[in-house]
């Protein structure tokens, strides 16, 4: 890691001011920041430690939904009885992520900002070309080993996958990211790479994620997060799906359904086409499988990641069928 200075912010305001300096970065759980600092991807001059700030780790869950402070740890949220009851997919997305140790360290705010696992992004000394790290330098991944790269939302500038699990569940249930007084729907929080893959979220210099808010909904309450990967544990998703379903009073007609994908796209990916085609229908295996294929409309393969285009709809279908009692 490049040498940096370190100080503990006494308040959110002080932290916010400090990050206006070029070269200053906030330090929370550190699991992404210190990892990337070791890789030489991030080279902060100053780390502003916010882990000691009071109040930013609070959680409340009530009939309206959940508000979760940015400094709440992944593990705390995963184990929170209220979250587990009202937002099973959210709790599962967290408990299926990383390891118990990392979940004790990483914060919810930091988790939303975790960076891609693209191998080319992570080795700046070897692969100087990376538009995400160094705008305009090119993309080393295109034409390389792309087994873990995105098939959705890619551009000619970047095919790096967003590795998040939590954000996928949040996107499905229309959560908000709170940055002090500013509040942004999480789907709008993440940006497509386009020509500027270095610009990943709408977070502005000096802004701090202070928390997330997840509105309660019957679909969120009846939800699941399904994560498929090579290894049984401690691995990012090859493909994942957050799905929640609300049925009509008849118990079988779909009133509301939420579908989002992870591990396959450059940002957490809401699959509205799948949702639209199933709302108002009674689920059956064939219809669900057909609808799920809409989740990868427009997908582009770069060779090694071709399997994701086949895999993702199957993950979506299984998650829907599971919640529909058909799996």
């Amino acid at each position: 890691m490049r040498d940096f200075s370190y100080f503990r912010a006494a308040s959110t305001e002080e932290a916010s001011r400090a990050t206006l300096d070029a070269g200053a970065m906030l330090l929370a759980g550190g699991t992404t920041l210190l990892d990337l600092a070791k890789c030489g991807v991030t080279e902060p001059d100053t780390l502003v430690d916010i882990t000691h700030l009071a109040g930013l780790g609070d959680m409340t869950v009530d009939a309206n939904g959940a508000t979760i402070g940015a400094l709440a740890k992944m593990g705390e949220v995963a184990d929170h009885p209220g979250v587990k009851a009202a937002f099973p997919a959210v709790a599962q997305s967290l408990s299926l992520a990383a390891s118990a140790q990392l979940r004790n360290m990483a914060t919810i705010g930091g988790n939303l900002l975790q960076r891609t696992r693209c191998s080319y992004f992570r080795e700046p000394g070897v692969f100087p070309a990376c538009n995400k790290r160094n705008p305009g330098s090119g993309c080393s991944a295109i034409g390389g080993v792309t087994r873990n790269h995105a098939v959705l939302g890619t551009s000619r500038a970047c095919i790096a996958v967003n590795p998040g699990d939590l954000a996928v569940a949040l996107v499905a249930f229309d959560a908000y990211v709170e940055m002090g007084r500013r509040r942004v729907a999480i789907e709008d929080f993440y940006m497509l790479p386009g020509e500027t893959p270095d610009w990943e979220t709408v977070l502005k210099k000096g802004e701090i994620i202070t928390g997330i808010a997840i509105p309660a909904s019957p679909a969120a309450k009846n939800s699941t997060y399904l994560k498929v990967r090579d290894r049984q544990s401690y691995e990012f998703a090859a493909a994942s799906a957050a799905v929640g379903i609300e049925f009509e009073a008849d118990g079988k007609t779909v009133r509301d359904i939420r579908v989002a994908l992870g591990g396959v796209a450059t940002r957490p990916w809401r699959a509205r086409a799948v949702e639209q085609s199933l709302i108002g229908t009674v689920l059956n295996v064939e219809a669900v499988e057909k609808a799920s294929r809409l989740s990868v409309e427009g997908a582009v393969s770069h060779g090694g990641n071709r399997y994701k285009i086949e895999l993702a709809p199957r993950v979506v279908a299984r998650a829907i069928l599971t919640m529909g009692g058909l799996a």
Binding site: S119, E123, G144, D230, R231, Q232, S233, E235
Partner: peptide, 17 residues
């Protein structure tokens, strides 16, 4: 070049496997 040169990308079995 071997590009999965770390333990997050060169996967060895975990306890759960």
């Amino acid at each position: 070049r071997v590009i999965n040169n770390n333990m997050g990308d060169y996967l060895v079995p975990t306890n759960a496997d």
